[in-house]
Amino acid sequence: MAVDAGPGATVGGHLARPSGAGGQLRRLARSPWRIVVGAVALVLAAMLVHLFVTSSSLQWGVVGSYLTSSEILLGLWRTLYLTALAMVIGVVGGTVLALMRLSTSLVLRTTASAYLWLFRGTPLLVQILFWFNIASFVPRLSLGVPFGPSFVSAGTNSLVTTLVAAILALGLNEAAYMAEIVRAGILSVDRGQTEAAQSLGMTRRLAFRRIVVPQAMRVIIPPTGNQTIGMLKGTALVSVISLPELLYSVQLIYAKNFETIPLLVVASLWYLIVTSVLSVGQHFLERKFGRGRTGGSFNQPNRVWTRGLGRRVEPYLGDAL
């Protein structure tokens, strides 16, 4: 950079200044392929916009009239609370599973691993159908002594409605994925942190809460944001059990009026709006939990922030569980 005899070296009188408009022009001039690639991308984008604006099957008037119709808004509302409830189950369940996997108890560790194996090893769509049809597998649910008398009992179908089946399927599946995210977050915190906390007189539990969790959050938050966005879109799967969330609400309408494309655009626009809002929220959460760090590096010797994934598992809640 220091010695630059190339074109534009004296642009604006700044010698050897790589940034700025002059620098960009210079870089473009050096690599004509950038211009070609950029031009191709621009043409493709223009074609796409042209398609959306002029397509005869995509009638913007229809899109506009349905975008805020009550059926669509009700479907959107169902999508939102399905996402929220399933994520609550996923985060709470995932945290419990992660702590089980980090526990000293072999029974807890094995149980959690078996859960993960089952719920990550089968398609979510199958799990949704399974929960929807749970009544034919377990006709009655009862509370009582195992293999003994029961105190309360009810027909499975009256308890596990379509909505409950959807929430259970999405939430329990999510818990399996969140478990790995939470576990990776906890393991990312250097063992020296717990030792330092203990040497100051903290119990394992207090050290976990005050020192480990705040640092683990930094690793846990970004993928959890991604999971939430994934969940929002994943709720569309429960349309297969006729739960009128956003997608199924749209399907119900276009089944009658055959305005398939405009209505799919309506659904897509809402998904895009909500995911955009969620992304902004995620950005602020990441900033909050990134306290004490700029960028991703960790300025202590002998430390790599993400080290520890393959390290000996420290039983964090050995006493607590």
Binding site: A196, R204, P214
Partner: peptide, 26 residues
Amino acid sequence: RATELARQRSAIGMVFQSFNLFPHLT
């Protein structure tokens, strides 16, 4: 018990080779 040991440790200061400051706190 863990709480007893924690109380004893609170009276013994330790300084580590790798500092182990809590990075999320000033």
